[in-house]
Design a protein around this nucleic acid. Structure first.
Length: 857
RNA sequence: GCCAGGGUGGCGGAAUUGGCAGACGCGCGGGACUCAAAAUCCCGUGGUUCUUAUGAACCGUGCGGGUUCGACUCCCGCCCUUGGCACCA
């Protein structure tokens, strides 16, 4: 027997196994295998700066599950890559005077080193990096495919423009009028842009949410709200004094008699015509001034509801098709140009927005829906938006609003004045970015042939390698811009936009399957074997956009028969963020925790600091570095603490103090095993039947723990899985301090404990496994099964309640713990019970088998 | 404003087809070891009151009601909080 140190020398252990799994190729997945496939996927990172312990959560969860599934005999694919294009790389590069590629690739190297440190393993043969020509070539190919199918188009439209980043932002990247990235005020600008026609898929994207049983409900809800389907009627209003008509969408055709004015968005085409035709110069100026002013205020702010309602009467009238009445047409700042037709019929009696506007400008308010039949309220203080019965509505009076919806809708349809339609909030996907660091849009603008696609064989359209990166991206680089038309050969110009990085990440999970294929985007057969992704895990911040875009691209690829599935991710899990204490001084800004003096005083000025929990970020100076942590406690400690910290779907607070507890636990695990490794030198069999009571209890605990850990891992309940292993080690120590237990039991127990802890703490797991005499990786071992019969107890301890309050406990043989007659007899004999029950009548005797009895007196 | 989630000891959190609230960890208190400290190990730890060295009673899962033999769990009405959406006609 060799003398082994019982000290937990995590540095020696971790450096020993750091590259072992990679060298052994244990995480390399054979894609031609089709048995027991499991595609596990973490959202790939944007490689910015260095990772902190908060980033680790996602990958630690993934690595733990992958190891668990591997031990369960599954052929797991768990690839990793980098979402490497994007604005921050460009900003950082400009700041440092280097190329964004350099910055990005340095970061990627850093990330990979961090994965190694954590013991997080991937099949790197299948890696994708979205900024490489090998990858974006196929992103461009995908663009051409969408173009070919009429789903990529150019359009001039007002866009959000951030003067600081000098780029166009998608609506969703604007947070209450400010740039999502830099916080600058967003302006509006007219530009020709590329769009993907995601709205063609609105109904499928919405309807198929029902199929996604493995997705959290709240994510599906967020997507459904984002798509925003509403049913209604498009109604045609003729203009009173000129040819033409005004189309409006309404969900309330039942209120048509209550329409007392029309309201146009300032961008509505009729607005311009009317202004031109206005003869009175004062009126003309008034209209022009209002329209210009309102247009200048960017759309997101207008849509944000921050503005008070304003409008101006155009002098024009429209004819209500239901009763022939003429109603005034206004221009109003609260009408959205991009939804519906950009014009509405206003029913102030039954829409609060219309009500407020009508009150302000003294426009009549007509009640057409009454809460009770034939019983109008009279004067309205506010709009009545609930269903009810029609009044003041001619031949339709008395109908309830639901019937009226159908009846009036059909009435209009018959007269060619209306049509039942569906409207969506979802807009087409603006993918153009006036930036350098992205995949160039593979289109060429020829003066003669117009806009033509780059031929497939000319892909990729490579990003020009330039030293200086300006603010306007590719448009500044003449060598790139100047080209020849692929159709006629004449001089032409390349499109200088690059694609939104959400395009890159909308299909990467498919490319992993054919990461090195230089001939085609992917191999359809293999992709169909492995996808959809069985389990996708990532941050909830991607609940809407990334997931929606990926679903859209998947549906598109399915429609063009490149894949045979139409949803990319069968199951989705969204993990919460990790926050950490952050200190802030009024005068000196954020202060790193380690510099904070006693009593939360600022080290600069001694002022009281404000202390809050904030998500980890460099700017708040509250990041915890994995490198420091691993240096002090080891990667296994970080891993198990991260999993133990709280439920994975919730936001949690990092506590430097609590980390020590996890380290202490691993020390206990290590010592327990190390002190008994000599048992593995000899044969020590044991028979569970012949154990003492104490030993039996440990054997039961061992089996119970295997069961709990297995079920907890399957259910993403890592924190409780860890706590049950903690309980098991406590049980070991308790028994060892009392008696000298059966060596066979201890040996078997420690072996099983090592197996079940190994996905959480792979370094310790691998080290102990080898010290036990195994030649192969612990990943090649089978995940232990629990013995159901070992879980059974011979004795049950029942709580004895009187009127629902616990008054005593009783131990009974397990066979009779559901036998009311026998229990009643035993329980009533207990001193504590008999004196309480006394002479009172026992009305009821409730038995919950194996749990409790309740005596009702 | 609308939608979704959450509110449990000094702290992070366990426990819901209704069945002994507070597992596990942190912190704290006491003890062992030590010249001492750290580390480690053992014991204790929701509150109040009584009792007295063994316990007991009452209260207790945001607040107020309800259903039930029994409610952290279910129902009704509130409060607070965190996310998402927010003039979508």
């Amino acid at each position: 027997m060799t003398e082994v140190s019982v000290d937990y020398n995590f540095k020696a252990i971790e450096s020993k196994w750091r590259n072992y799994w990679k060298e052994e190729g244990l995480f390399d997945t054979e894609l031609s295998e089709t048995e027991d496939n499991f595609y596990y996927l973490n959202m790939f990172p944007y490689p910015s700066g260095t990772m902190h312990v908060g980033h680790g959560r996602n990958y630690i969860i993934g690595d733990t599950l992958t190891r668990f599934m591997m031990m369960n005999g599954l052929n797991v694919l768990n690839p990793m890559g980098f979402d490497a294009f994007g604005l921050p790389a460009e900003n950082a590069a400009i700041e440092r005077g280097i190329h964004p590629r350099e910055w990005t690739e340095d970061n990627i190297a850093d990330f990979k080193e961090q994965f190694d440190q954590w013991g997080i393993e991937y099949d790197w043969d299948k890696e994708v990096q979205t900024h490489t020509p090998e990858y974006y070539r196929w992103t461009q190919w995908l663009f051409l495919k969408l173009y070919e199918e009429g789903l990529a188009y150019e359009d001039v439209s007002p866009v959000n423009y951030c003067p600081h980043c000098d780029t166009v932002l998608a609506n969703e990247q604007v947070i209450s009028g400010k740039c999502e990235r830099c916080g600058s005020e967003v302006e509006e600008k007219e530009l020709k842009q590329w769009f993907f026609k995601i709205t063609d898929y609105a109904q499928d994207l919405l309807g198929d949410l029902d199929k996604l049983d493995g997705w959290p409900d709240h994510v599906k809800k967020m997507q459904a709200d984002w798509i925003g389907r509403s049913e209604g009627v498009e109604i045609k209003f003729n203009l009173a004094d000129r040819p033409g008509e005004l189309n409006v969408f309404t969900t309330r055709p039942d209120t048509l008699y209550g329409a007392t004015y029309m309201a146009l968005a300032p961008e509505h085409p009729l607005v311009e015509t009317v202004i031109e035709d206005t003869e009175d110069p004062d009126k003309k100026d008034e209209l022009r001034a209002f329209t210009d002013k309102t247009k200048r205020i960017d759309q997101t702010r207008r849509a944000g509801g921050e503005l008070t309602k304003e409008g101006v009467f155009t002098g024009e009238y429209a004819v209500n098709p239901i009763n022939g009445e003429e109603i005034p047409i206004w221009i109003a700042n609260f009408v959205l140009t991009e939804y519906g037709s950009g014009a509405i019929m206003s029913v102030p009696g039954h829409d609060q927005r219309d009500f407020e506007f009508a009150e302000k400008y003294d426009i009549p308010i007509i009640e057409v829906i009454a809460p009770k039949k034939d019983n109008p309220t009279g004067d309205l203080d506010e709009a009545y938006e609930e269903p009810g019965y029609l009044v003041n509505s001619g031949e339709f009076n008395g109908l309830d609003s639901e019937e009226a919806y159908e009846v009036i809708g059909s009435w209009l349809k018959e007269r060619d004045a209306g049509e039942f339609t569906v409207n969506y909030k979802l807009r087409d996907w603006l993918i153009s970015r006036q930036r350098y660091w992205g995949a160039p849009i593979p289109m060429i603008h020829c003066p003669d042939c117009g806009t033509v696609p780059v031929p497939e064989e000319d892909l990729p359209v490579e990003l020009p390698d330039v030293e200086f990166i300006g603010n306007k991206g590719l448009a500044e680089i003449d060598d790139f811009v100047e080209t020849t038309c692929p159709v006629c050969g004449a001089p032409a110009k390349r499109d200088t936009d690059t694609m939104d990085t959400f395009v890159d990440s909308s299909w990467y999970y498919i490319r992993y399957i054919s990461a090195n294929d230089s001939k085609k985007i992917f191999d359809t057969g293999t992709v169909n074997d492995w996808l959809p992704v069985d389990q996708y895990v990532g941050g909830v911040e991607h609940a809407i956009l990334h997931l929606l875009y990926s679903r859209f691209i998947t549906k598109f690829l399915n429609d063009v028969d490149l894949i045979d599935f139409n949803e990319p991710f069968a199951k989705l899990f969204t993990q919460g963020m990790i926050s950490h204490l952050a200190y802030r001084c009024e005068d000196h800004g954020w202060i790193p925790p380690e510099e904070v003096e006693d009593g939360n005083k600022c080290p600069e000025c001694g002022k009281e600091l404000s202390v809050t929990m904030e998500s980890m970020s460099k700017s708040k100076k509250n990041v915890v570095s994995p490198k420091d942590l691993i240096e002090e406690y080891g990667a296994d400690t970080e891993r198990i603490y991260t999993l133990f910290i709280g439920p994975p779907e919730k936001d949690v607070e990092w506590s430097d103090r609590d980390v020590k507890g996890s380290h202490r636990f691993l020390t206990r695990v290590w010592r327990l095993a190390a002190e008994h490794l000599h048992l593995f030198d000899g044969d020590h069999d044991f028979n569970p039947e012949e154990l003492s009571d104490g030993e039996k209890a440990l054997w039961r605990k061992i089996n119970q723990t295997i069961k709990e850990v297995t079920e907890d891992l399957e259910g993403f309940s890592f924190n409780t899985a860890v706590s049950s292993i903690m309980e098991l080690t406590n049980e070991f120590y308790r028994l060892l301090s009392e008696v000298d237990p059966d060596p066979g039991l201890i040996k078997e127990g420690i072996k099983k404990m090592t197996l079940i802890i190994s996905p959480f703490t792979p370094f310790i797991g691998e080290e102990l496994w080898h010290r036990m005499g195994h030649e192969n990786s612990i990943l090649d071992a089978d995940w232990p099964e629990w013995d159901e019969s070992a879980l059974e107890k011979e004795e049950s301890e029942l709580a004895v309640q009187i009127n629902g309050k616990v008054r005593a406990h009783i131990k009974v043989a397990s066979e009779i713990d559901d036998d009311e007659e026998k229990l009643r007899e035993k329980v009533l004999k207990l001193d504590r019970i008999s004196e309480k029950v006394d002479s009172k009548e026992v009305k009821k005797f409730i038995v919950v088998p194996g749990n409790l009895v309740n005596i009702v007196v």
